[in-house]
Design a protein around this nucleic acid. Structure first.
Length: 779
DNA sequence: TTGTGGGTCTTTTTT
DNA sequence: AGACCCACAA
């Protein structure tokens, strides 16, 4: 790196809220540095500048900088920005990533230092090997189910899911099985600690780690191996942490250990945006930073460059209600902008409809305002199940959308199966993978034969792979099932060899594995409507393997790095949870479902009381501050819950919004909006929620007294659904649309089913209710 | 062993 | 309303 590289332009970096000394601190200061930065103040930009400056001045080499981000997306963006600031692709920064990704990399180097102690004299010590597999939540649950069954604990009393929650929690706080305290297990069956211990032991036996272990193991190694710790302490000259308010106990320990030598730790965070308390994040980490890292500098970033004054004021009013905060007031030099819009709806689907229509108008550029691209618009929901209503509404309005964080690519069954095959190709002893695919495709191995294999493996202290071999040899399983199993074993051995020889590329290997196993064929033979999509996903999987030289790297990537919004460049409306929206910004934001019990979520209030409500409030703050220009909050009077209609009360957060900064939108007061220069056409408002007495301007007062829902009528059936209820609406030759198969035309009608010739997916016979009538869609 | 139907329970938020 | 689990039949 050329040390005279001065291409970094700080005056462009929007630090005008800082004085010269502060800018210098942000760029170059040695020693602990805390940046307290509000929403939209450019904190990540500040971190980026610091990294670029360190490299440009040759203060540190790229690989001596440890930079931790909260998401992989943030890491990728930071890397891109550093590159562009340095005006070069430095292709360095190997230690930029999430805590988990960085720890996985470190642990691959030192895994063998982690062992389970000898428990039975017959068993040798077992060490973790560097080719360990990283389990995801679904694997963990499977494993915990086994543990619970072994300990004969009634799943009603303690479900695997609940146990996982507790174990996660303990791991986040660095509580090992031996250190679980009385208060940790209060109200739980007493065997729960033994379950935790058994789970940990099983993990090592399986040569596997879970997400929590990645960090926990590294802290353990650092604590017990001074030489290794010193090596990394020495190596990482500068440590930078983004979203510091969301770090947990283990992450804090890990950072402290690594920062102890150079003490160049620079953390950025906003106490008002701490929304991961449920996952072990400790607000104390940021509140006590100055005490934990003596002699630290504190820089405050309070100028907001993102939102209009009304949006900022509304957000501030909401967060001001929290007691537990450092307290800061954001300001902006912007003077104009829309007020925050507030809309009441009759029910959930009407809310989705209204928003879809409103988005369509914004996109078309309903006068006054320039048209917004769809990718500039986001809908932020509290829970994932709220997303469905919007998908429905968007399909019918033919608006392109993308769901972030719903079902993730690698969580789909076919991808998990395929990955199980890849894991076996790397290591035949991967029992979890083996168990997953012994009978996929079907090989006639049901519960009985599975158990035979398992018992055999266990009593011989070998893997399921070996166990299967023994079971065939002894004739415990014979006939065509034995034959099928035998060919599976041979395939796996062959793949193991091919991987070892390393002569085929990762893509060739993957293609071969999926073909030879008969897995792709299985889906090609499948006649269910999802099958073609699954085959497509498998093809996509093969393609993405190509980016990696080794399968192992690919598998790490899948479990640690993959981000679920690959098509972010496409012009689509984003639908995501408030949590997933952290760190992002959009010109137009919709915040639906601001109702008591949903937001704030009932369970949070029940389980965590006031602290929980404060976190929900911070979530509301995060939501509002994502918006640059237009922010629309809404709620529904009635909502379908578990198939039953339920009357709803507006969220308490709505009452915190100052009248001066909001505009209640409905048809009855459609023309009642500001006439400042950025105002837009009343057409928008005319499209507002359907007439209903609760949409009157005074609804908020009513609502705050709880009056609205006492009078709520039974929900009416929704108007003008464009989904066909039966095939009688269709005629042969008609053009239709299907969510999965796209466009097509009907060539036959059979009762409530239609036969369709799809442009892309060929001929299918489906229920008419899944088909959209193209001639009848509004707009 | 696999497919079906009727009964149950369901909804946090994620690296 | 939909996903999931269990009991029973083929």
């Amino acid at each position: 790196m050329n040390s005279s590289n001065t291409s970094i332009q700080y005056q462009n970096n929007a630090f005008t809220g800082l004085n010269k000394a502060q800018v210098e601190a942000v760029e170059t200061l040695e020693g602990p540095l805390l940046m307290l930065a509000g929403a939209g103040t450019g904190k990540t930009r500040a971190l980026t500048s610091r990294i670029a400056h360190l490299i440009a001045t040759d203060t540190a080499k790229p690989n001596q900088i440890l930079a931790v981000t909260f998401t992989n997306k943030a890491a990728r963006e930071m890397r891109e920005r550093v590159d562009s600031m340095l005006n070069a692709s430095i292709s360095g920064l190997p230690w930029l990533g999430t805590f988990h990704a960085i720890c996985a990399k470190l642990l691959r180097r030192h895994a063998e230092l982690i062992a389970v102690e000898e428990t039975e004299s017959s068993k040798p010590n077992i060490h973790l090997k560097s080719d360990f597999t990283i389990l995801d939540t679904l694997d963990q649950i499977r494993l915990l189910r086994q543990v619970l069954a072994e300990k004969r604990i009634d799943p009603q009393l303690l479900s695997a899911k609940e146990l996982l929650r507790h174990i996660d929690n303990w791991k986040n706080r660095a509580v090992l099985p031996a250190a679980v305290s009385e208060s940790d297990v209060a109200g739980l069956p007493e065997e729960v600690t033994a379950c935790y211990a058994a789970y940990q032991q099983r993990l090592i036996e399986l040569n596997a780690v879970d997400f929590g272990d990645l960090l926990l193991h590294m802290v353990k190694i650092f604590q017990t191996q001074p030489r290794i710790l010193q090596k990394y302490q020495h190596w990482f000259r500068y440590i930078l942490v983004d979203e510091y308010q969301d770090t947990n106990v283990v992450q804090y320990m890990w950072l402290r250990l690594l920062a102890a030598k150079h003490k160049n730790i620079c953390c950025v965070g906003d106490d008002d945006q701490s929304i991961y308390g449920w996952r072990g994040a400790r607000l104390e980490n940021i509140l006590n930073f100055e005490a934990n890292f003596p002699g630290c500098h504190v820089v405050r970033l309070e100028q907001n460059y993102r939102s209009t004054p009304h949006i900022l004021a509304a957000a501030a009013a909401v967060i001001r209600q929290n007691k537990n905060r450092l307290g800061k007031e954001l300001w902006t030099s912007e003077e104009f902008g829309e007020k925050v819009r507030l809309v009441a709806h009759y029910d959930g689907s009407e809310e989705a409809y209204w928003i879809a229509e409103n988005i369509a108008m914004l996109h078309l550029g309903a006068s006054g305002m320039p048209p917004f691209a769809l990718k500039d618009i986001a809908i932020l929901v509290r829970t994932t199940y709220q997303m469905r209503a919007f998908e429905d509404a968007f399909l019918q309005h033919q608006l392109a959308y993308r769901v972030v964080g719903g079902l993730r690519f690698f969580e789909r069954a076919e991808i998990r199966d395929a990955i199980a095959y890849l894991r076996l190709a790397l290591s035949a002893t991967d029992d979890l993978a083996f168990e997953r695919i012994v009978n996929t495709p079907k090989r006639g191995i049901g519960d009985v034969r599975k158990q035979k294999i398992e018992q055999c493996a266990r009593s011989n202290h070998v893997s399921l792979f070996e166990g299967t071999r023994i079971v065939i040899e002894t004739g415990e399983i014979k006939g065509k099932e034995a034959k099928a199993l035998n060919s599976l074993l041979q395939m796996i051995s062959k793949w193991n060899e091919l991987v070892r020889e390393n002569r085929e590329t990762s893509v060739e290997l993957t293609q071969r594995i999926l073909d030879e196993s008969g897995y792709v064929q299985m889906w090609k033979n499948d006649l269910t409507p999802e099958a073609p999509g699954r085959v497509e996903n498998l093809e996509e999987l093969v393609n993405s393997v190509g980016e990696f030289q080794f399968l192992q790297d690919f598998l790490d990537h899948v479990s640690l790095v993959i981000d679920n919004d690959s098509d972010r460049e496409e012009d689509k409306v984003t639908i995501m949870t408030l949590h997933a929206a952290k760190g992002l910004e959009f010109p137009v934001v919709f915040l639906p479902g601001w109702e008591e019990d949903l937001f704030p979520l009932q369970r949070v209030a029940k389980e965590s009381g006031t602290l929980g409500i404060e976190e929900e409030r911070r979530l509301a703050y995060v939501g509002v501050t994502r918006a640059e220009k237009i922010c629309t909050i809404s709620y529904a009077d009635n909502r379908l819950k578990f198939g039953e209609w339920e009357a709803r009360i507006p969220s308490r957060f709505i009452n915190d919004l100052p009248d001066a900064n909001i505009k209640v939108v409905s048809d009855s007061n459609a023309v009642d909006y500001d006439q400042d220069e950025t105002s837009w056409d009343s057409q928008l408002e005319v499209q507002a929620a359907s007439a209903n007495v609760y949409n009157s301007p005074g609804w908020r007062r009513l609502a705050s007294r709880g009056g609205v829902n006492d009078m709520a009528p039974p929900p009416k059936k929704n108007k003008s659904r464009m989904i066909a209820d039966d095939s009688s609406q269709f005629a042969v030759g008609q053009r239709i649309f299907h969510q999965k198969f796209g466009y097509g035309s009907i060539f036959a009608i059979d009762g409530d089913k239609v036969e369709v010739n799809f442009e892309k997916s060929g001929q299918k016979k489906l229920l008419a209710s899944f088909v959209y009538d193209l001639d009848n869609i509004p707009i």
